[in-house]
Each structure stands twice: as C-alpha cells, then as structure tokens.
Design a protein around this nucleic acid. Structure first.
Lengths: 382, 382
DNA sequence: CCTTTTTTCTTCCGATACAGAAGTAACCCG
DNA sequence: CGGGTTACTTCTGTATCGGAAGAAAAAAGG
C-alpha cells in the first residue's frame, strides 16, 4: 500500500497544510511551518510540477493586501484524484465519491440483503463502479464498519454483521484493483472531523456520537488515541446514574441506556405501550408531552454529565456531538448546557461544544478521508 | 533564564534520554532516537567533553552480553549540578537539595510564621543557603505553590496564602542570585513523575492527588495539558454522587467532599462528635468500626468511580495516585478496584493503577525537577 | 596462543536540507 | 516614471545526517 507520490516529510507537511487549511501563499506557509521562504520555493516546486498543487487563480481581489507584490496562494488540485468511502450498516451500505478535500461529488446507497463477506465485498465493488461512473479511476477506497478493525484491513469482530476476522480489505481490493483502507466507523468519523471538520487545527479534540449506540473518540496532538473497547458498545458501561433506567442495551443507567436512540424509544414504549419514532419523541417533548419530556429531559441531563466529564478529565479544546441523535440538542440544549455548568468548576474554561447532525453518508465520507490520509499522504496510521 | 549549555536539539534529546532512562550505550541511544551510530559518536563527544555525560565505569559484569566488544554505557554526571526545590504550605515550607537525576541529597523544613511575600522569599533564601551548605552553588531553584502560577514566575492567585499577582520568582532570585522557576504544586509533581517516576517513557499519563484537596494532572505526548482551574479546588465540582455528603469544602457529593482528608475527618466528626485523625479513621475502618467503615467505603467507591472515569475519557496508559491520602488504597483497595471494574467496559484494557504515598518533601522534589527541566535542558515549558 | 567472529564505536565522505543574503518580480502610490 | 513595499527566487555556505569502511575490544574456536 504505497503512497501516491514519494513525498519527503517536509513536502508532506506542506501538502497537508494546504490540504487542510485551504489556499495559502508561500510566505504564509513558511510562517506556519517555521521554514525560510527559500525552502518553500524549493519544496513547492516539485509539488506544483507533479500537479498536486496549483497557484490559485488570483488573490480573488478581496482587497486583502494594500501594497507590494501580490501573493500567489497555492491550492490543492482537489479534483486531481477521487476517493470512495463506504459505511456499512446492518441493512444498508452507504457510499460517497469525494475529491482530495473530501468534498462529496456523488452518493449512493443500497440495501444489504446478506452479511456474507463475499457478497458484501461484491456489493461494495458494484457500488464502486456505479459511483466512479465516467470519472477517472478513484485513487482508493475507505470503508467504515462498526466493530473492531485490525491493521486497517481486517474486521476483527463485528457483532451486528456477525463477522470475526474477515479480511474485508483484501476481498474488496481483489474485486476492484484499488487500495483499500478499513477502519472502525467512529474512528473514521473522528479522523475526518480532525482534518476537515470541527477539529481542524486543534491539538486536543473529542467526538461523542449519539445514534444506535454511543461512540467516543479522542484526538491528541493530531492523532487519535486508540483504545481496546472501540466498538458500538463503548457507552454501555459508562454509568451515569446508578438508579437510571434499565434497557435491553447497556448496563442500568449507562450512557447507552440513557442516550442512545433505541433506548429512548424503548423507554417511551415501555411507558406508553406505543412504538414511537425518535423524531416524534423529540417533537413531543418540545410540545410539552409529559412522558416524552421526562425521557428527553433525563437524556439531556445524562448528555450534560457526559460532556462535563469529558471536559473535566480529557480537557479537549473542543467537543463535537455527532450522529443521528443530536437532535436532542435542539430540543433540550438548555438543559444540557445547565447540566454541564453544574458539573464543572466555576473557574474552568467554558466547554466549546459543537453539534453536527450526521447521516450515514457523512459516515461514509469519514471513511473516504481515511483513504486520503493513508493513500495520498502516506500516513501509516497509528 | 538561559539554558546551562547551548545544546542543539539533537544533543538535548540525547541528554534527556540518558537523564531519564539511565545509563545507555551509544548503540542503544542510536536505536531509541532513530539515528545512525556515527551521529551518536558526533553528538556525545561534546557532551562528554563538557562534563555532562561520562562513560559509566563498566558494564558492571552483569553478564548481559555474550560476545563482541562490550558496550560503553553513557551516564549523566548527576552530581555535576545540584538543584533546590521548595513546597510552600500554609504553615510550613519544605525544601530539598537534589542532583540532576532528582535524587535527594538534603532536606529541610521550617515553620512559616507569616504569609508576607517578602518574608516568605527571605525564608526561602535562608533555607537555600542552609540546604546548599558546603556544596557548590546550586544551578537553580524550583518552587511549588498551591494556586495559579503565570509564566513560571508569578503567583497569580493563591487562596491559602492570600496572594494575588506576587512575583515570587523575582523576589527569590534577587535574594539568592539563582534562576528560579515557580509552578503550581500539582503541575510540578506531575512533571516530576513524568520524567523520573511512574510516568517515565509513557505517552499518556494521569496523576490524581488526594490530600487537603483533590488534584489532577494529565500528560499527553510528554507534556502536561494546561487548564484554567488548576488550583486546590479542582475536585470541588466533580460531582460523583448527587446524594453524597455535604462538607464545608466542595459541592455536595463532589470528589473533594467524598475523598479529601479534611472532608473525611469532617464526616466522622459530624457523626461521632469526636475529632479523629485520618490515619486513625483508616485504622478504624480496617478494624471494622462501623462509622469509619461507612465513610471509608464511600470514599473508596468514589475513588473507583473517579479513576474509571479518567480511564474512560482520557485513556491514559497509567494512572498514578499520589498525595498524603492514598493510604485509603491500603485499607480499601479491593473496593476501589471492584468499583473501577464495574464502571469500565468488560473488554476495556485493565487500568494500570499505581499508588505512591508522598509527603511534602516529595512535592518539593517535584519543584526541583521543574528547575532541572527548564534550566539545564532549556525546556521553555508550555 | 593465535585466528576468527561478533559487536561496539569511530572516522570519513557524500547527500540533503536548511537559513540567510542578495537579487528579481509585481503591484501601489504619488 | 521612479520610490516603496511585499512576494518570491536564486545562490551559497553550513549543519547534520546516513552509510561505508575501518579500528577496537571482547568471546569462541582451533
């Protein structure tokens, strides 16, 4: 799995800086990377010749500079390569086609009829052909799976697919002829947000996902901290309230049983006997329905405690809430914020909390970013 | 505050590696620092000539090597420089004299009659003279203070001393003529443990101190994460059990009110009417006294929850419990460990927990380590 | 006891990459 | 049109590294 271009470490740092932080002039790059201007001329020359960078059209006439020779911002040729990203769920596969900046240029999703590894690989290959279409061949494929992934290639264990030691990377590579990177879905989303999203340029950054389960990722010094239990079941044993609700998933009063979408629906169903959708429960709480309000309020307090604990112990500069369940913040954001405050030291810096609703295509985009990192820029991973 | 020697970055990394990881041969150093053997000859030569390093006496005949030319381990000349470290408490000042490896070669403590900054500085200067004795002049002084410290020189705010913006570094430097580094006491202890203690060689490392208050420090990638509320009052707003005890210090059910030594004594006093010492309470719990057992047991569970949360969210490779209150682990270590387990994912890596009883001279030693880092090796700090 | 092997350390050389200085280019302003 | 200003390029000296080859120090083997 060799890198696209043989880049020296300094060249790579230039490429990453431009890729992540938009068009930058050589002088600005020299300042950021603490190199001399002369070095920047030397480093950028081969990158431009190889077609990875271009001198941007013009300063844009933004009136930024007053006098002197105008700067020549350099930009990544985002369209020069394309990447595929996939997210596999229990009953559906979501795929996106992106450029180097991880801008989505195509999306697709297909039902997943069987969990047989070969069939899944075949479906991915078929979707790859469909997505790539008449574009030039993509440079690589990233795949996000809920479960444990080893060496960015083998799915060690995935409960919802019933997989154990499935060499998904090899299976897909054989069918597409493209390099493949497989990673845990939460890990992929975290990396994507670190490079192109909320965590851009930060040193310490945390992501909490709310969906079918609770996911957590911590980024320190630009790289994600690996941990043993990264799996959908992460939050099942984070006990927030020992007297909290008991649901089919997770220990009593755990983050999963208080916050995950299935658990919230379970609680409402257990109390009312009706099967209500998540969005409907949120709407009910907003409208003042007592049963929904009680469950949503409890979830909001749990989320506040969780965020406060992350802020207290891991001390990230920013926390991102992502996933399908963050609509909770729209309905009960005030409760969440109040709870955070009451569980933080009054002198502590306020928590920089960002919310981002993400659908399954966003998860697929995260996987594509992983392919960009590994294949183009030669990041070997952890 | 210039560095002792003008070391190049590569030379500095060699010096630090030898300082922290004991005597090492050139070959071993080359392996660790990913340099060629030739470079190591070049880098070590001036360090040996300047007297900072020496070739250790012999391999020690440890029978380590089978054949071939025996290696020549290099070692820091620990005695070549000495350092002073001080810890200031409300009623007493503790001081130590150490070598480069932070080995203590002298200790002293004096009552603190007044909190007047000039008087404190004068006392420190007097103790410095007493400690240095007939040794050659120390290379620098480190001072640890509970409270906020700015730029490693000015005590921004210290509640127990009643100080605000006291330029302690300057005051002591003027009286001793030596370079001075001032830092928060917990921060200093954390740095010391990172370099020479439990956190040696680790990438992610957490320290939790139990004493008059609760302190916390997180080290990521070799450097400590700075945070706003670093102060004795850190744990006052970590709510562990909302229905927990209410004590004079800290919010109801906070880490401080459940775990700190004054709060534990307060709880026993409130229940029995007698003023009992901390050690006596621990002994009582061990002997089965119901009142002490109840308080100690609750504290142990709180500690377990705290450690589990740190492990869950900050994911350090090791957690060190330090301070005067860690005797709790001897009496109720089982409860602590059980609680940690129940608040962790079953698949999560077991928490590497180390306990270290520390007295006030250990805090002073931490401050001395800070002086070593800053003055000898030119670490500018954060 | 001398040679071979093995490992450590040193010496030397060439390649690389950097900073800094000086020069060139591009644009504004009067 | 020339000075001022800023961006970029070219050039050169230097620092630092890796790699090859050699010297040193010990064990192993005849």
């Amino acid at each position: 799995m060799t890198s696209w271009l043989p880049l020296s470490p300094a060249e790579r740092s230039v490429a990453i800086e431009v890729l992540v932080h938009g068009p930058l002039s050589r002088t600005e790059l020299a300042r950021r990377l603490r190199l001399s201007q002369g070095s920047l001329t030397r480093l950028t020359k081969p990158l431009i010749e190889s077609g990875l960078l271009v001198e941007a059209a013009d300063t844009g006439g933004a009136g930024e500079h007053r006098q002197g020779r105008p700067s020549r911002p350099l930009d990544i040729v985002a369209e020069s390569r394309s990447f595929l990203g996939f997210k596999i769920t229990a009953d559906r596969v979501y795929g996106v086609l992106t450029g180097l900046r991880s801008e989505v240029t195509g999306r697709l999703d297909r039902p997943l009829a069987t969990h047989d590894p070969d069939a899944v690989a075949a479906l991915l290959a078929e979707m790859a052909t469909g997505l790539a279409g008449r574009h030039p061949a993509p440079a690589g494929i990233g795949i996000g799976v809920g479960g444990r992934v080893r060496e960015r290639a083998v799915v060690g264990e995935s409960a919802f697919l019933g997989w154990r030691d499935v060499p998904l990377g090899t299976l897909v590579r054989e069918r597409t002829g493209l390099p493949v990177v497989v990673e845990n879905d939460v890990a992929a989303l975290v990396e994507a947000e670190t490079w192109f999203g909320a965590g851009r340029g930060l040193d310490r950054f945390a992501v909490l996902t709310i969906g079918a389960g609770i996911g957590y990722g911590l980024v320190l010094g630009g790289s994600r901290v690996p941990y043993e239990e990264e799996d959908r079941g992460f939050g099942r044993h984070w006990i927030i309230d020992p007297y909290g609700p008991l649901t089919p998933e997770g220990a009593r009063g755990s983050a999963t049983s208080l916050l995950s979408i299935p658990s919230i629906r379970h609680q409402v169903r257990a109390a009312t006997g009706r099967d209500v959708g998540y969005e409907e429960i949120l709407a009910g709480a907003a409208a003042g329905d007592p049963m929904s309000s009680r469950v949503v309020d409890e979830a909001a307090r749990a989320l506040g405690i969780l965020v406060a604990q992350i802020a207290n112990f891991a001390m990230p500069q920013k926390i991102l809430l992502a996933g399908e369940g963050v609509g909770l913040m729209d309905v009960a954001g005030g409760t969440v914020r109040d709870t955070i405050r009451s569980h933080r030291h009054p002198l502590a810096a306020p928590v920089d909390l960002e919310t981002k609703v993400s659908d399954f295509h966003d998860w697929a985009r995260g996987a594509a970013v992983l392919a960009i990192q590994v294949l183009v820029l030669g990041r070997t991973g952890d």
